[in-house]
């Protein structure tokens, strides 16, 4: 369906997009994940037609969209902080796109009711947008983008300004709406939990490039490089050496399940990789325990190396100061070529 091929966008000397390739299949949701300034929004704007490409092309099926103006692409875009029209009420915002194409007032009103119903805002028609809460504005923006039945929906940090409870709820709802409409979507976010929850595939961006594309579980299991692992919150990263099929880390030697090209490597334990194991080889002391509700994150100091992070259930969490024995799952030990090389 949507294909981005070798897209380049330059702002002065800087490349906001640097030869980006990306594909969105039918009914697929691609989460574009990256830190701020990595080019996510530029990518959306380029696909939308609001930003001209320096090189490369964007195709819909077999059509090159270079000559198609933004307002003729039939793509929906939900803006960061929503960009609702302050001079129109809720219905006026949602109806806007319909008015561009249809003069049938009754049909438009029906469609407005339909989408407001879909996002759970039935009865909000005449409310002023300024009087809405953040979550409600977000739904209006979503309804406005959906009303015209776009062939592709793009969402730019749609949950950015909301609090945690709202984020969860709306994430579930957006997922459900996208599924029901079998609508292909590009979802931009800097939050990996959000990206993993919404996406069929995740595209990780860094400095204008797409560095990894894959299913959420796949990306989580094996981030492509040390930078990506850090970006996903893995850590700490330590210098290690691969010898005789073993990775020699400050925490001890662990079986190497990958085939690194170099001897000097950087190693990082995935958050699910270290666990309390009464027969484990690592002796450590718990120095910090962070209670987050369903789980507790421990920091445990071994004889050498930085503290290891261990996630446990609250009911069998040791106390700070306790001595514990740990083991590291060889499959969860990620090894990358040393960046200094």
């Amino acid at each position: 369906m949507l294909r981005v091929e070798g897209a380049v966008v330059r702002f002065g000397d800087r490349r906001a997009l640097d030869h980006v390739d990306l594909e969105v299949g039918p009914g697929e949701t691609i989460a574009v994940l990256g830190p701020s300034g990595s080019g996510k929004t530029t990518l959306l704007r380029a696909v939308a037609g609001l930003q001209r490409l320096g090189e490369g092309c964007i195709r819909w099926g077999d059509d090159d969209l270079a000559g198609v103006a933004a307002h003729e692409r039939h793509f929906g875009l939900m803006f960061q902080e929503y960009a609702l029209f302050p001079h129109r009420d809720v219905a006026g915002n949602v109806e806007f796109g319909l008015r561009m194409t249809s003069s049938d007032r009754a049909a438009r009103a029906r469609r407005v009711d339909e989408v407001l119903d879909l996002v759970g805002l039935a009865g909000f028609r005449t409310r002023r947008v300024a009087s809405l809460s953040g979550g409600e504005q977000q739904r209006v923006a979503l309804a406005r983008a959906l009303a015209v039945s776009p062939r592709l929906l793009m969402l730019d940090e749609p949950l950015g300004a909301l609090d945690r409870v709202w984020r969860r709820r709306l994430l579930t709802e957006i997922r459900a709406i996208l599924d029901r409409a079998a609508l292909p979507a590009l979802y931009v976010t800097h939050d990996h939990e959000e990206a993993f929850a919404i996406a069929t595939r995740v595209a990780i961006m860094r400095a204008g490039r797409v560095v990894q594309v894959g299913a959420p579980a796949e990306v989580w299991r094996a981030p492509v490089d040390a930078w990506t692992a850090t970006f996903l919150g893995f850590g700490p990263i330590v210098a290690a050496e691969v010898r005789n099929g073993l990775v020699h880390t400050p925490w001890g030697s662990i079986e190497c399940r990958v085939n690194p090209a170099a001897r000097a490597v950087e190693a990082v334990v995935r958050p699910d990789g270290a666990r309390i194991d009464d027969a484990g080889p690592i002796h450590a002391t718990v120095v910090r325990a962070m209670f987050t509700g369903a789980r507790v994150e421990l920091a445990a100091v071994a004889e050498s190396g930085p503290p290891l992070i261990v996630v446990v259930a609250p009911h069998d969490a040791p106390a700070v100061g306790d001595r514990v024995r740990l083991s590291i799952d060889p499959d969860a030990l990620l090894v990358y070529p040393d960046r200094a090389d």
């Binding site: 704007r45 939308a48 037609g49 609001l50 933004a70 307002h71 003729e72 039939h74 793509f75 929906g76 875009l77 803006f79 960061q80 902080e81 960009a83 609702l84 029209f85 806007f96 796109g97 561009m100 194409t101 406005r144 983008a145 015209v148």
Partner: peptide, 11 residues
């Protein structure tokens, strides 16, 4: 972005 939003809605 209001202008962009209107553009994306077909204006």
């Amino acid at each position: 972005r209001l202008r962009d939003a209107a553009t994306m809605l077909g204006a």
